[in-house]
């Protein structure tokens, strides 16, 4: 609990700081409190993951510190950051921290060793600080490359995946691409996208965590006793993928509209095409579940999920599935 508090404080320091040094400090605090959360003495995988995380983040922090010092040296303690190569170095460091595409290699590997709650934190909360810092950088070329690579790799990487954690990791990379592109245009859209993404990933990881689901075949065999849970879970999958009638489409919609207004057609086409690929593999998973032509185990245990969790889950699922309609209702209300 202490570490979580410190972690949150670290992120807040980063977000609110007005100098690079302060931002670096916040990131360090955040990192150092997240490591104990990750590591679990009984599990070798999580230790390895925390080590990997530490190494990567430490390297990124070093580079960040190095470049911000460089910046201050060159610009006489001025926070002007129009200097392109310096800011490219900062950008690279931040992209590495957030796990965006050309520097994403640690991310799926690490996810494989985490529990679902840690994975959720890694996918959502840990992205706030670096993304916020990226939004300060006024540099487009590296960001564009990163966006394109993120969406493409996120899409293609998830295609052959059977591990749910890796699947979520690649999905996260894909969404990160969208978030970076929204970051180029407006911070508020990024915020909306991030909130929706966090909400949708939370629903899924919440379920995965309760039922300890780590692989795809578990998905098919586990929910025999409750078709409602199963269907709603897969609908959430589709919502995360961004299929139109569900809530997940809304942030994508906003980004698509903004990018169109900014004439970023090439980027937009690439992003949408790669998102189609993600949708394809989400659909492929859901298809066999919706069509009910999968193998069911006879020895499946009774599911035990307490009613609080069920209610929470169902309320969230309701919003995830009908959110888009509800939002349009609100639009007509005011």
């Amino acid at each position: 609990m202490l570490f979580i508090t410190i972690m949150i404080i670290g992120t807040l320091i980063t977000v609110t700081s007005n100098s690079w040094l302060g931002a670096w400090m916040g990131l360090e605090i955040n990192l150092l409190s997240f490591i104990p959360l990750l590591s679990d003495n009984n599990n070798l995988m999580s230790t390895e993951a925390s080590l990997k995380y530490f190494l990567t983040q430490a390297l990124a922090s070093t580079v960040l510190l190095f470049s911000s010092i460089l910046l201050m040296l060159k610009n006489n303690m001025n926070n002007e950051i129009n200097e392109s190569f310096t800011s490219m170095i900062i950008m690279s460091a931040l992209l590495l921290k957030s796990g965006a595409a050309p520097f994403h290699f640690w991310f799926p590997n690490m996810m494989e060793g985490l529990t679902w709650m840690n994975a959720l934190m890694l996918m959502t909360w840990q992205k706030i600080a670096p993304l916020m810092l990226i939004s300060y950088l006024n540099i487009k070329n590296l960001l564009l490359i990163s966006v394109i690579l993120s969406v493409v790799i996120g899409a293609i990487g998830g295609l052959n995946q059977t591990s749910l954690r890796k699947l979520m990791a690649f999905s996260s990379i894909n969404h990160l691409g969208w978030m970076l592109s929204s970051l180029m245009i407006s911070e508020s859209i990024w915020l909306i996208y991030f909130l929706f993404y966090s909400f949708l990933s939370f629903i899924l990881t919440f379920m995965f965590n309760i039922f300890k689901l780590f692989h795809l075949n578990q998905l098919f065999s586990w929910f025999v006793s409750s078709k409602i849970l199963k269907f709603s879970l897969f609908m959430n999958f589709l919502s995360l993928g961004g299929l139109p009638p569900f809530l997940g489409f809304l942030p994508k919609w906003l980004v698509i509209q903004q990018l169109t207004l900014c004439n970023q057609y090439f980027l937009l086409t690439l992003m949408m095409m790669s998102t189609l690929i993600t949708l394809f593999f989400y659909l492929r998973i859901c298809y066999s579940a919706f069509m009910l032509n999968y193998f069911e185990n006879n020895w499946v245990m009774e599911m035990n999920m307490n009613s609080n969790n069920t209610n929470l889950y169902l309320i969230m699922t309701f919003f995830s599935i009908f959110g888009l309609f509800l939002i349009s209702l609100f639009f007509f209300m005011f």
């Binding site: 990997k52 190494l55 990567t56 580079v63 590495l96 520097f103 290699f105 640690w106 590997n109």
Partner: peptide, 9 residues
């Protein structure tokens, strides 16, 4: 992992 970190450096 170290290869990636090397490449980054």
């Amino acid at each position: 992992l170290k290869i990636y970190l090397m490449l980054f450096v």
